[in-house]
């Protein structure tokens, strides 16, 4: 009891310090904006107005939805393939020797190259280029994380299950899968943030919809307040994702990592 109170107190303190820091940043922004043209540094007020306008014309919601759906699509493809590749390569040196260098190669090539290639190959009109980039960026991360997850499975528990005649299916569902849950959650966390950034980047470079495209349009039209408004949207989406989805998920998964 005492421990949980003091821990909560510590968390509250951290939260207070963090909020104070953000407020300082915000104050600096307001103060600086007074000295500059809105084209260079729009004030919080102008940014807020731009944000409201985006909301009213509907482009905020529609663009966020497009980017989110691309992120989810590319990210789940990458998670699924990463998991399959990890399982496939696990026991066999042949597949491991084959797959690992290819994934390293994919990882070494900078995302901008993949984006350029994706635009050349798939054009800019549809979803394929962003989804492709998200997939390519997230896949190696997912693979490595799942691979180490499989490594961490406790062979002693599997032996125990064998002595007590647990079926193959029971061993998989009751030992392998629960043991992988913490890795799955951490993979999803890392994967989603990678995928989200990749989505914005790809849309910025070569797409006609989505938050990244809206950013790029605002940029080329010299609507700096809109750029700022979109940045606030990006931050908001990631915060919602982190505290609305990933933190509760991690908390639930903590039981499994004992």
């Amino acid at each position: 009891m005492a421990i949980s109170i003091s821990r909560r107190k510590g968390e509250f303190q951290k939260l207070a310090i963090g909020t104070a820091g953000l407020l300082v940043v915000f104050a600096c922004w307001s103060r600086l904006a007074e000295n500059y043209h809105p084209l260079i540094l729009p004030s919080p007020h102008e940014t807020g107005k731009a944000l409201l306008a985006l909301w009213k014309e509907g482009s905020l919601v529609s663009n966020v939805l497009v980017t989110l759906s691309r992120t989810l699509c590319g990210c789940s493809l990458a998670l699924f393939s990463g998991f399959a590749l990890a399982v496939l390569t696990k026991g066999t040196t042949f597949w491991q020797a084959l797959v690992r260098p290819i994934l390293t190669l994919i990882q070494i090539i900078p995302p901008v190259v993949w984006t350029v290639l994706a635009v050349i190959w798939f054009g800019i009109a549809d979803h394929v280029a962003p989804v492709f980039l998200i997939f390519v960026v997230t896949l190696p991360v997912a693979f490595v994380s799942f691979f180490s997850g499989l490594d961490s499975i406790d062979g002693q528990l599997v032996e125990m299950a064998a002595v007590y005649r647990c079926s193959r299916l029971k061993t998989i569902t009751e030992i392998y899968l629960p043991a992988l849950i913490p890795h799955f959650v951490s993979t999803v966390s890392v994967g989603i943030s990678f995928a989200w950034k990749a989505a914005i980047f790809a849309e910025f470079m070569g797409s006609t919809t989505g938050v990244g495209f809206a950013l790029s349009t605002a940029n080329s039209n010299l609507q700096t307040e809109k750029v700022f408004a979109w940045v606030l949207v990006l931050i908001a989406v990631m915060l919602v994702c982190e505290y609305g989805l990933l933190t509760p998920l991690r908390r639930r998964a903590a039981r499994w990592s004992a």
Partner: peptide, 20 residues
């Protein structure tokens, strides 16, 4: 060294093998 499933309670750990 006890080999218990960390994600199951004491009773669930026992049931895990008993059910077989």
């Amino acid at each position: 060294e006890p080999r218990l499933l960390p994600w199951k309670t004491v009773e669930e750990n026992i049931r895990f093998v008993q059910d077989n």
